[in-house]
Simulated assay, not measured.
Amino acid sequence: MFAVKTSSSQGTPEFYQSLAGQLAALTQDEPDLIANLANISAVLFDQLNDLNWLGFYLVKGTQLVLGPFQGKVACVRIDRGKGVCGTAWDTGLVQRVEDVHAFPGHIACDSASESEIVLPIRFQDKIVAVLDVDSPRKGRFSEIDQAGFEAIVRVVEQLDWSAV
């Protein structure tokens, strides 16, 4: 079902458009949110180069709580406004960080992480989760990558979040 990744196709708008379409097809007949998030995180981690962590944090009360992910053991709970993930939740804005060590209050779950992008996920005009993507390479995420992840988040936002 999924195209084999090649370094030459990575980072292009066409690559991300294709990936978003494939994720939409993968999730269209599955109603379980956690199963879908698990498969999405697995596909993205497999299809994208230079990543060391990729996953979801779900809003639970006043904290983000670890959801499906790929990578090393992660922080389980993040307070609103703390670190890159908490900042994305608090501001409602994508956080694309070229150098995590320069980000005030960065939470270092994996010391190998050098850059990060975090995107808020909305359901019924409310942020219900964030997609967190880390790389061991500084400056890994471009404007094209951000636009591509935003297209993927639009697919994720079509899932049934009503139980969260």
Rank of each mutant, 00 (worst) to 15 (best):
R77Y: 06
L23V: 06
D99F: 12
K5I: 03
V76D: 09
F149D: 03
V100H: 08
N39D: 10
V59E: 07
I152K: 05
A147G: 09
L54T: 06
S135N: 07
L93V: 11
D134S: 07
E114F: 05
I107V: 14
S18C: 12
V97E: 01
L33Y: 02
P13V: 08
L58C: 01
R154E: 14
A35P: 00
D29Q: 11
I152G: 02
F2C: 10
L37H: 01
S111D: 14
R154F: 12
C75D: 01
A129T: 02
V73A: 12
S135T: 02
S162T: 12
I40N: 02
L48K: 00
V43K: 01
R137Q: 15
S162D: 03
R77F: 08
Q158E: 15
E30L: 03
D90V: 08
A163R: 07
V76F: 10
L44K: 00
A25F: 04
A24H: 09
G61C: 07
L93S: 13
E150Q: 10
I34G: 00
V118Y: 03
L51N: 05
V65K: 05
T12G: 11
G55K: 00
Q22M: 04
G83N: 06
E116S: 12
E30N: 09
K5M: 03
Q10L: 14
Q47L: 00
P68S: 09
A147T: 06
A25M: 08
V153I: 14
I144E: 08
R96A: 09
G148I: 02
V118G: 05
P13Q: 12
L119A: 04
Q95C: 11
P31Q: 12
S8L: 13
V76K: 14
V128A: 13
K82V: 14
V76Y: 11
Q28V: 14
E157K: 09
L93P: 00
V97M: 04
A35K: 15
D99Y: 11
S8Q: 15
I40F: 05
L33E: 02
K72G: 12
I78Y: 01
Q95M: 13
R122G: 09
A20G: 03
D46C: 03
G11T: 08
D99L: 13
F103T: 09
D46V: 03
D29P: 00
D99V: 13
P68F: 08
F103W: 10
V133P: 05
A42N: 13
T87N: 08
T6W: 10
N52W: 05
L66W: 00
C75H: 01
D110C: 08
C109D: 02
G71C: 12
D99K: 14
F149M: 08
V100P: 06
E114R: 15
Q22V: 00
G67N: 05
K82L: 13
S113T: 15
G55A: 05
L66E: 00
I152V: 15
G148L: 05
F15N: 01
A38S: 14
E116A: 10
Y57Q: 03
I78Q: 04
R137V: 15
R122A: 14
A163F: 03
L48R: 01
V118C: 11
D50S: 13
V4W: 10
Y16G: 02
D160C: 07
F141C: 04
A20L: 10
K60D: 07
R140H: 04
V155L: 11
V130Q: 09
D134L: 07
W89Q: 15
T6Q: 15
T62M: 10
F149E: 01
Y16W: 10
I40T: 02
P31Y: 07
R77P: 00
I78K: 02
F45K: 06
